[in-house]
């Protein structure tokens, strides 16, 4: 009970990601159909991406887009760009007025990294599905045990 209250409930999303990853791994290992294996691979990938995106979440934060102070901020940037030899104290006060509090926004770095991971995942899936279509053309089946049986009998597909 203590364990559940201290480590399961505050991090319930991480536990769900672990469960999803294990579902995907189980499918990749035990399922015999090649398309089913690829479905397992997709679930595994999305569980990892979910974990990374949830790292960037902060309590009470919003999406990482600046919605106000647009023209003031731009002015501030050109101002500091023009006067590099400013007194340090003045510069600091000038900065603190226009500073953006990072606690109000979700961390966008994991989002950008995982955007790449999604695209890589889909291209991996496309190549894998193309290979399974070519396996079907050679062997006439998508079941792993039947393919292994046909290879053992010296069936088609060995002469590439």
């Amino acid at each position: 009970m203590e364990f559940i209250q201290n480590s399961v409930l505050p991090h319930f999303n991480y536990w769900v990601y672990v469960i999803l990853m294990m579902i995907g791994l189980y499918a990749m290992i035990t399922k015999k159909n090649l398309v089913k294996k690829l479905i397992g691979m997709t679930i595994f990938q999305t569980a990892i991406i979910l974990f990374y995106v949830s790292i960037g979440v902060k309590t009470g934060s919003t999406i990482p887009i600046l919605e106000h102070h647009a023209e003031e901020h731009g002015e501030a940037v050109t101002d500091t760009g023009g006067h590099h030899e400013e007194a340090p104290g003045e510069h600091e006060s000038h900065d603190s007025i226009h500073a953006v509090d990072p606690d109000h926004f979700a961390n966008p770095l994991p989002h950008v990294l995982m955007l790449t991971a999604i695209v890589v995942g889909v291209s991996t899936l496309g190549v894998a599905l193309a290979i399974s279509q070519s396996i079907y053309k050679d062997f006439g089946t998508l079941e792993e045990h039947e393919i292994l049986e046909k290879i053992k009998q010296g069936g088609p597909g060995i002469d590439v």
Partner: peptide, 23 residues
């Protein structure tokens, strides 16, 4: 809902759309 809107619409277009069509 987690604030990753860019990832969300990429997933909707690429993950749900394109990969379902591939399958």
């Amino acid at each position: 809902e987690m604030g990753a809107v860019d990832v969300a619409f990429t997933e909707a277009a690429v993950g749900a759309g394109v990969s379902t069509v591939f399958m």
